[in-house]
Simulated assay, not measured.
Amino acid sequence: MLEQFSIDVDQGLSSEHKYLPSKYFYDKVGDALFVKIMALPEYYLTRAEMDIFEQQTLSMLNAWALDKHQHFELIELGAGDGSKTKKLLTTLKRKQYNFDYLPIDISANALDQLEASLARELPDIKVHKQQGDYFKILASLKSSHHPKVVLFLGSSIGNMSDEEANGFLIQLGKTLNPQDKLLLGADLIKPESLVLPAYNDSQGVTRDFNLNLLARINRELGGDFDLNQFKHDPSYTQQEGIAKSYLTSLADQRITVKHTGKQYWFKAGEKIYTEISRKYSDEIIQNIIEGSGFQMIDKLTDQNNLFADYIFNKR
């Protein structure tokens, strides 16, 4: 993991237009900061999707049309703290469905915390945590003949370009069997006045979350980033429908990263591209599932129509 981190950092900082992969936000510090972000008043995404999970888990079960007596696997990609999924797990248990829960996450720390919280709150749920790459783990599960329901929540798909999202869903479709299900969380397109504060909160937690990426390079790769010489710099327009996050250099400066054995030059005002957060419409969703073998069977939205959980069947 450290070697790949080093390779990815070198590639990103050596690029003409500098970038850093957003997956490296999530170390122990980043996990804790993101939990704080989800509770911020400006960060509507978690509350909106939570509203769906609090009010409409029975609608999810009806859409999935599962036989409650047939064992199935509930697989969550990027499970995080599982706060929304626990609402679904509670309903499944109350309705006496026969299932195992398989949370998958790149962060071992997040999985350990989720496992511990489930042991306290829902001790009867069978949990099989899986740490690592989504597709490697899903490929290992493909031989299982149990029906599968895959959750990909939080509009995590929005961290990809539309082309990348389409490739991701095509690859995901290849790991599933006919009649398996996918629930895809997607933040809907809305005005800048609602979206931009979610990525630039008044308390500066999102700023700290982004800057922690540089701090992680310092800690793990021997970097010498001065965090005070970079600022968190998000942007969004409703017409484009894509929130973008950058770290902007405040001065001409030279950064050394010992693990890559290189130095990287920054001009004042030069940006490091760290993340996108795509917002969606039904039309965009239909475009990104093209060729994946998924067919939309339902769409659930929160009461304010800010967020949608799209439900698909694998043909």
Rank of each mutant, 00 (worst) to 15 (best):
N210L: 04
G132D: 00
L141S: 12
L111A: 02
D201V: 03
I52A: 05
S143G: 13
D67A: 12
H259A: 15
M1W: 11
S83H: 13
S22W: 03
L40C: 11
F135Q: 05
A116M: 01
L58G: 08
E3Q: 13
S143I: 14
A119L: 10
L196N: 13
F135C: 09
T46S: 09
W265M: 14
K136E: 15
Q4A: 14
L182V: 03
I217V: 13
D201L: 00
I272L: 03
E220Q: 13
L45P: 14
E76I: 14
V205M: 08
T260L: 12
L213Q: 12
G12Y: 10
F266N: 15
Q238I: 04
Q113Y: 05
D187T: 07
K18V: 01
P178D: 02
L172W: 09
K267Y: 08
L194E: 15
F312W: 13
L306F: 01
D100H: 14
A63P: 06
L153I: 00
E3K: 14
Y134L: 05
D27A: 05
N98V: 12
K87E: 10
V29C: 08
L77T: 02
D282T: 04
G291F: 01
V127D: 14
A198N: 05
A308K: 13
G167F: 07
Y24N: 03
P103I: 08
G158Q: 08
Q56V: 00
S156F: 06
Y199E: 05
L213S: 14
S281E: 06
N210M: 08
A119S: 11
V29T: 11
I52H: 03
V9R: 04
R216A: 13
G293E: 07
E49Y: 07
K36C: 09
Y273T: 06
S245T: 15
L74N: 02
L247N: 08
G204Y: 00
I255F: 15
G158M: 06
F25W: 07
I157P: 14
I297L: 10
K262C: 07
E3D: 15
K262L: 07
L214R: 01
P178S: 00
Y101R: 00
L194M: 13
L20E: 00
D133A: 10
L89K: 05
I52D: 10
Q179M: 11
L122K: 10
K142S: 04
I289Y: 00
L221E: 15
I276P: 12
R254Y: 01
D8Y: 04
K314D: 02
Q303N: 12
G223H: 07
I137S: 04
L2S: 05
I125W: 07
Q171F: 03
K314S: 02
Y310H: 08
Y273H: 15
I288D: 01
F209T: 06
Y280E: 11
D224I: 01
D8Q: 04
S6E: 03
S14A: 12
I189Q: 09
L33H: 02
V150F: 01
L194N: 14
K95I: 04
D252A: 13
E16N: 07
M50L: 03
M50E: 12
K181N: 10
P123E: 06
G173L: 07
S22D: 04
I189F: 06
H71L: 15
D133F: 01
F72G: 11
Y199D: 05
K18G: 09
G132L: 00
E54V: 05
K136S: 14
